[in-house]
Design a protein around this nucleic acid. Structure first.
Length: 324
DNA sequence: AAGTCGTTCAACCGCGTCTAC
DNA sequence: AGTAGACGCGGTTGAACGACT
C-alpha cells in the first residue's frame, strides 16, 4: 500500500540508487521541486512524491553538512532538547546543515545513552528516579558503565566568585559507592557548564543555557503567530523588549532573593550581562519580585531552569532533586 | 570462514495541520 | 463549514555494517 498521494502510481521503495539520486537532483536544480506529488513524474522516477521530498531534504540538498556531529552541536542538541523535548525539526533549526532525521538518529543512538550513563533521564533531563537508577545500574553492570559522582569544573565562575573551590564533586545518593567513577563535565560532552551557569547558595550550583530559556519562556507564553514573529525577529537579531527586561531583572536590577535561592547568572558571549553580574554581587539584592504582567512564562522558567541540573553540596541541601 | 549480535541511519508509516476549493 | 489533497513531523522499521565468537 503506497501513500494516498501516489496510490495510483507504481512506486519503488527502499534505498535510492545513484541513478535515481541523479535524476532527482537534476530535476530540482533546474525546475525546483514545486508540488512534490508531481516531482516523480516530471523527474522520471518511479517513486512517491513523499519519498522524493524526504530524499531531497534529508540527503541530497546541497546545504547539508555531512559527517559526525561536533561537540558544540551535541551541546546544542542537549540544551534545546531539554527545553523543547522531542521536537526534532525545531531542534534541527538550531543546527545549520543538519536535518531533523539526523538529529533524531543521533539522539537515539548516542546522546540518550550518554545521559543515562550520567544518571540523567534523557526525557526530562532530571536525575533518574530510584527505579530508573536500578534499571540503570543493571544497564551499567551489563555494559560496564558507571557514573554516580559528578566533578564540576568551576573555573568559569572564578571571575565572579574567586573563593569557589576548583571543583565540586556531587554524588547521587541513589547510586552505590562501588560506582564512584568520575565524570568530568568539563571534558565530557554534557552541555551544562559550557553554556552558562548559576549559583544557588554558596556551595550549590546549577547551570543552564539561559539564552535558550529566555527565548523559550517567552515563546511558551505566546500564541503560535506571535511565536513565529518572535523567532523571525530573533533570527534578525532583534532582541525583544521582554527579553531585555527579563535579562535586566535576572542579572542585576531585580535579582531574586530568598533564604534558599540567590541566583546569579552569567551568559556566555555577553559581556554586558557578565558585567552586570559582577557589579551586582557586592550589592544588596533583597525583596526583588517578578511581576506577572510581562509575557514571560514563569512556570516554564521554573521548570526549565532549576530541576534539570541541580548539582549541590549535599551537606547544605541534602538530597535535593535526586529523586525528582 | 561463517554465524550471531548490536548499532547506525536511511527510509517508511501514520497522523495532525494547513490550504485551496 | 466541509472536504480533499499536500505537507511536515515524530515514531518506527529494517538493511547494511562492524565487532565478536
Amino acid at each position: 500500500m503506497g501513500h494516498h498521494c501516489c496510490s495510483k502510481q507504481k512506486v519503488k521503495r527502499g534505498l535510492w540508487s545513484p541513478e535515481e539520486d541523479e535524476k532527482l537532483i537534476r530535476h530540482i536544480t533546474t525546475h525546483g521541486h514545486g508540488c512534490w506529488s508531481s516531482v516523480p513524474k516530471l523527474a522520471g522516477l518511479q517513486r512517491c512524491g513523499k519519498s522524493c521530498r524526504l530524499r531531497w531534504i534529508n540527503y541530497l540538498r546541497p546545504d547539508l553538512k555531512r559527517g559526525s556531529f561536533t561537540e558544540q552541536e551535541e551541546r546544542t542538541i542537549i540544551d534545546v532538547h531539554r527545553i523543547l523535548g522531542n521536537r526534532w525539526a525545531q531542534i534541527a533549526k538550531h543546527l545549520p546543515g543538519r536535518t531533523d532525521n539526523e538529529v533524531k538518529n543521533f539522539w537515539n543512538s548516542v546522546i540518550k545513552k550518554k545521559l543515562i550513563s550520567q544518571g540523567l533521564d534523557p526525557n526530562t533531563h532530571n536525575l533518574l528516579s530510584t527505579q530508573q537508577i536500578t534499571k540503570n545500574k543493571n544497564y551499567q553492570k551489563d555494559n560496564n558503565h558507571s557514573s554516580s559522582v559528578f566533578t564540576v569544573d568551576t573555573s568559569p565562575c572564578k571571575e565572579i566568585l574567586p573563593n569557589l573551590s576548583n571543583t565540586f564533586e556531587f554524588q547521587n545518593p541513589n547510586l552505590t559507592q562501588n560506582q564512584n567513577h568520575l565524570v568530568e563535565f568539563s571534558s565530557c560532552s554534557n552541555s551544562i557548564l559550557s553554556s552558562g551557569f548559576g549559583i544557588l547558595n554558596e556551595n550549590c550550583m546549577w547551570a543552564s543555557n539561559i539564552n535558550n530559556v529566555f527565548e523559550q519562556s517567552l515563546m511558551m507564553k505566546s500564541s503560535g503567530a506571535v511565536q513565529e514573529d518572535q523567532m523571525q525577529k530573533e533570527e534578525q537579531g532583534v532582541l525583544l523588549e521582554d527579553q531585555q527586561m527579563m535579562k535586566r531583572k535576572l542579572v542585576g536590577e531585580d535579582i531574586i532573593n530568598d533564604d534558599q535561592e540567590q541566583l546569579i547568572y552569567r551568559v556566555n558571549d555577553d559581556e554586558q550581562l557578565l558585567n552586570n553580574v559582577c557589579d551586582h554581587q557586592s550589592t544588596d539584592i533583597n525583596n526583588a519580585m517578578f511581576d506577572d504582567s510581562s509575557n514571560i512564562d514563569f512556570d516554564f522558567m521554573d521548570s526549565a531552569l532549576v530541576p534539570p541540573a541541580i548539582y549541590c553540596n549535599m551537606n547544605s541541601i541534602d538530597h535535593i532533586a535526586w529523586d525528582c
